[in-house]
Amino acid sequence: MSDWVEACAAGDIDEEDVMRFDHGGRTFAIYRSPDDDYFATDGLCTHEKVHLADGLVMDDIIECPKHNGRFNYKTGDARGAPVCVNLRTYPVRVDAGKVLIQVG
């Protein structure tokens, strides 16, 4: 499937930060890493369905704003209590200054 959708402009997200993106009744989190790459995951924490985009990005880690569950946003791996279920990740590409994610 090649259902790429435009999430935002590349400049909408600061380096080492995250933004919420809603599409088709779903919610995603789009990340810009400290080395200027873009990533996307499901938008809600797997612990209590809190929007991760309100959380803090440090290096490769997004931390849930509610209970500090941690994930590696590049791989979706859960990194310690209280989260134990990994986050789903999505392919991302940047095209002409736009961040596109494959929501599939």
């Binding site: 929007h51 309100d54 704003p65």
Partner: peptide, 11 residues
């Protein structure tokens, strides 16, 4: 409202 203060409190 919501988690508006979470990130800055964490910092």
């Amino acid at each position: 409202p919501g988690n508006a203060v979470a990130r800055d409190i964490r910092l």
